[in-house]
Amino acid sequence: MSGTSMEQRIAQAMAELEAVQAAVARAEAELGDASVTVRSKDRSVEVTVGPQGELASLRFLGSAYRTMEGAVLAAAVMEAAGEARTRMARQVKDTLEPLTRASSVVPELPGIEVDWGKIFGPDVLGEEDGEDDGSAAARRRRGGRRLRDEIDEDPEGDDRA
C-alpha cells in the first residue's frame, strides 16, 4: 500500500469493514433458516437438524420401525442425527470460512479466528467426504455401527432402578 495517502488507506479499510459487516449479515440470514435432513441408511428414520445442530424434526418412515428392536431403532436415529449434524456443521463452516481470511485489500485487517472444534465439538468436522481416515469422526462412525450389536434392551417389566 505504499504510495497511498493515509486518507485513502482509511477509506479502503472502512469499505472493507463495511463489506465484512454485509457478509456477516448475509451469513446470519442464510444460516438462520438453514436445516439439513438425512435419512438413516436403512431408510427407517429421517432426522432434520437446525443451524446449531439441534434436532428440529424426527420422522419414522414406513412401518418398519414398528418391528425394529429398540436398540436398532435408536442406532438408526443416532446415525441419521450424527450425519445431519456433520452436514450442517460443514454448511456453517463453508458459509463462514470466507470471513476467516485476511483482507486482500487491507493487510492490517486479519480474518476472524474460529475454533471450529470448540463450536461443533472435536469430532464433528474430523472427516471429509465420508472417508475413513483414522480420525475421531471415523472412529465414532465405526463405534455407531457397534452400537447396534452392543446395546441390550432391558426385558419388559424389569423394574430395577
Rank of each mutant, 00 (worst) to 15 (best):
117 G>D: 15
90 R>Y: 09
35 S>D: 12
3 G>T: 03
147 L>N: 04
50 G>Y: 03
125 L>Y: 11
92 V>E: 03
98 P>H: 11
52 Q>P: 00
12 Q>D: 13
132 D>T: 01
136 A>I: 07
21 Q>W: 00
65 Y>M: 00
25 A>Q: 14
83 E>F: 02
76 A>M: 03
132 D>V: 05
93 K>C: 05
37 T>I: 07
43 R>Y: 07
91 Q>E: 11
61 L>D: 09
147 L>Q: 09
40 S>G: 09
6 M>H: 11
8 Q>V: 03
19 A>N: 12
28 E>G: 05
105 V>L: 06
29 A>T: 14
114 V>Y: 08
101 R>P: 00
39 R>W: 00
37 T>R: 11
58 L>M: 12
142 R>E: 14
93 K>V: 02
33 D>K: 13
157 G>S: 12
99 L>W: 12
7 E>M: 13
23 A>V: 00
95 T>Q: 12
9 R>H: 05
2 S>Y: 06
79 E>K: 01
132 D>G: 07
38 V>W: 05
60 F>L: 15
135 S>D: 09
17 L>D: 02
143 G>D: 11
123 D>N: 13
57 S>W: 00
129 D>N: 15
82 G>P: 04
94 D>Y: 01
32 G>W: 10
151 I>A: 13
147 L>K: 07
27 A>W: 09
139 R>S: 10
67 T>N: 11
102 A>H: 09
20 V>I: 14
131 E>A: 15
16 E>N: 00
149 D>F: 05
26 R>C: 02
14 M>Q: 12
68 M>L: 15
9 R>M: 07
49 V>L: 03
117 G>N: 13
112 I>G: 10
69 E>D: 15
17 L>K: 03
94 D>S: 14
158 D>P: 04
15 A>G: 07
